[in-house]
Design a protein around this nucleic acid. Structure first.
Length: 612
RNA sequence: GCCCACAUAGCUCAGUCGGUAGAGCACGUUCUUGGUAAGAACGGGGUCACCAGUUCGAAUCUGGUUGUGGGCUCCA
């Protein structure tokens, strides 16, 4: 890592290394520590690989200006300003040069340099100068290997020969210091591991993961589509995808009613003045679509569902006795998203939030948030997600409300997370302008995180819209509003769900739970009769009555990830049974329709992800 | 929006040096009635994303537009 933070973090790193070594010496490390140690070692090696890549680029391109080049998960990157745009063909050339440098096995030499000298030394490197100027200390460290010298905090491997197997994977544009107002540099990403075998294993896993891509599976399984003609980021749900969505929504509604939510509907457009009052017109303008004129009045399509709920709340005087009110809506919203960020179902321009707004008294906030977090965890758990991250986002630079109210609400959220003993990290300054929030992020097939459930405290809207209740003292008090989703949006949730199961949905979610496969036309009547019986029992069943061979029908059901295949031929017809094949390839032989039904019913009721 | 790449039949993809396009699957018709992952034959289907330009001639070269992919920034 580069010297971007204080001397204290230097110390921390060095100490942690010394401690790690010490523990190693007394041989009391357990596997977790061994893993951490390996991670630290890999990070050092990957960071060194970034330096080697920089040296290779320097030797290939005159006048390269260097940005930063850290280790990242599985690899490294380095940002450069180059005389020309990189093309994919450049990567093998750079790789070859890197291999030469590694073969030369030059030592990584650390040097200290005082700041003034460093400024002189890096005088033709504007980005490095900027970094040096921001460093608090009077001396900086540089690392030298071969002909390449870089400003760097270290640590590094001893010499370039200690770099393991690596591969440069992609080139990308990246703004200097992540600021879109600053120059865009060219970033080269690479991956690096100790051994060639580990590298190949990683690349194989990557290829495997891309088979789970929801965009690919969405097409293959006929779940949804997006269309140039309709516009980017606008999802069309095909019957099977719509069915999965409907099952999720039905489940969602039932679970909400159980927990004291009421379900409401609000319109998709509203007068723009409403959004001016709310602050969205000022704070959220860049995500709003242009107003449309209706009889001389300007309307916009809603980017959020909250305002409708507020208007409904205000149709009556509300007593403290009647709070909290929990109003839920599967509300479809439209937001302008910049074209470069759209991604299948995971990031779109029109989506349906599984939204709800809780209007409560301040003293109820903690209990309400607790229940919402529990509900979100219950939902994720039910759908089979166990690997997610909780984040507590605190007050941003631009905020509404008083510092005191922010602190109280943030403290309430923190307390909830602690009481529930959920591991979480703080995301400083990442709250919404109207209040702090808890976000839950889900992983897609490639390990990228997507924000799903979110729980946001809001001080702004109750104040702007005078959202009040009559307290036990007979006077008006402002409510606290909680905006929350427990899935996120139907679109993004579906994306994560598809990737999580690689398209093989658990039985309760499968759009087609069973395909009946008659062997010959004379079994068609029996097949349709069976289908009727199973449908009567609530199953989603299809009969593959084409005049195709059984093998083809099995193959297609298998590729369609249908959990159960019921083969019926003479034998089954005679004995009034079905021959059951599972999508994992298992052949369970024959059983009666009712035996099959009771098996499936128990699987469905349990909602166990991987059981058939 | 920005950087790089890509766009050929419904889908997955070939298409050499610039000379008016091909496969497999899917679809249609016919034959086949087959016991646990692809039965066979024949047939229909393309303004090579769109708009310009260069050229005797463009899927192919150039520019622009739209869309897609990987990043960056931003977010459910």
């Amino acid at each position: 890592m580069f010297l971007l933070s204080s001397e204290q973090s230097w110390l921390r790193i060095d100490l942690s290394l010394i401690i790690a070594w010490g523990l190693c010496l007394v041989q009391c490390r357990n596997s977790k520590m061994a893993a951490e140690e390996k991670e630290a070692r890999l990070e050092k090696m990957r960071h060194s690989a970034a330096h080697v890549m920089a040296e290779a680029v320097q030797s290939l391109f005159q006048g390269t200006k260097f940005g930063i080049g850290p280790a990242i998960e599985d690899g490294f990157y380095y940002d450069f300003e180059l005389p020309r745009a990189l093309v994919p063909d450049d990567l093998p050339t750079i790789e070859a040069k890197m291999k030469e440098i590694i073969a030369a096995n030059a030592a990584f030499a650390k040097e200290e340099m005082d700041k003034a000298k460093a400024l002189q030394f890096f005088s033709d490197q504007p980005y490095k100068l900027e970094l040096i100027e921001e460093l608090p200390d009077e001396t900086v460290t540089i690392y030298r290997q071969g002909s390449f010298v870089d400003l760097c905090r270290g640590p590094h491997v001893n010499s370039t020969g200690n770099i393991g197997a690596f591969k440069l994977t992609s080139i990308a544009g990246a703004y200097w210091r992540g600021d879109e107002k600053r120059p865009m540099l060219q970033r080269i990403y690479g991956v690096a591991f100790d051994t060639q075998a580990e590298l190949e294993d990683y690349l194989a896993r990557l290829a495997e993961a891309s088979k789970r891509d929801h965009r690919k599976l969405g097409k293959e399984l006929d779940l949804f589509s997006l269309h140039d003609e309709a516009g980017p980021g606008l999802v069309h749900w095909h019957p099977k995808g719509a069915l999965v969505r409907e099952i999720i929504e039905d489940f969602w509604k039932k679970e909400h009613r159980k927990r004291g939510y009421d379900i409401v509907y609000t319109p998709h457009i509203a007068k723009v003045d409403l959004w001016k009052t709310s602050g969205h017109w000022d704070f959220y303008r860049e995500n709003l679509y242009s107003p449309m004129d209706i009889e001389g009045q300007e309307y916009i399509i809603k980017p959020m569902n909250c305002l409708g709920h507020i208007l409904m709340y205000k149709t009556q005087l509300r007593s403290y006795r009647n709070l909290p009110l929990r109003w839920a809506e599967l509300g479809t919203v439209y937001r302008y998203e910049r074209s470069g960020v759209l991604h299948g179902l995971a990031r779109v321009r029109g989506f349906t939030q599984d939204d709800a707004h809780i209007f409560c008294r301040p003293d109820q906030l903690e209990a309400e948030v607790t229940e919402v977090v529990q509900l979100a965890c219950f939902m994720l758990d039910t759908f089979g997600f166990h690997d997610y991250e909780l984040l507590l986002s605190t007050r941003p630079e631009k905020y509404a409300g008083t510092i005191q109210s922010w602190e109280e609400a943030t403290e309430a959220l923190r307390k909830v997370l602690q009481c529930l003993e959920l591991g979480y990290t703080i995301d400083p300054g990442e709250g919404v302008f109207y209040g702090p929030k808890i976000d839950i992020k889900l992983r897609d097939a490639l390990g990228r995180l997507w924000q799903g459930p979110t729980i946001q405290v809001d001080f702004n809207l109750p104040q702007r819209f005078d959202v009040n209740y009559i307290g036990d003292d007979g006077s008006e008090h402002q409510v606290v509003m909680v905006h929350r989703t427990v899935l996120g949006s139907m679109e993004r949730f579906m994306a994560c769900l598809i990737e999580h199961y690689a398209g093989a949905f658990p039985v309760w979610l499968s759009p087609v739970q069973a395909v009946i496969i008659p062997i010959a036309d004379r079994h068609l009547d029996y097949a349709h009769h069976l289908a009727g019986e199973l449908r009567e029992g609530g199953m989603r069943v299809q009969v593959d009555d084409r005049s195709e061979r059984m093998n083809l029908k099995i193959r297609e059901a298998q590729l369609g990830k249908v959990p159960y295949m019921l083969v019926v031929g003479d034998k089954e017809l005679d004995s009034s049974t079905v021959s059951l094949r599972l999508r994992n390839g298992e052949d369970l032989g024959s059983l009666t329709a009712s035996e099959f039904m009771s098996r499936v019913k128990s699987v469905i009721e349990a909602r166990v992800p991987d059981k058939l």
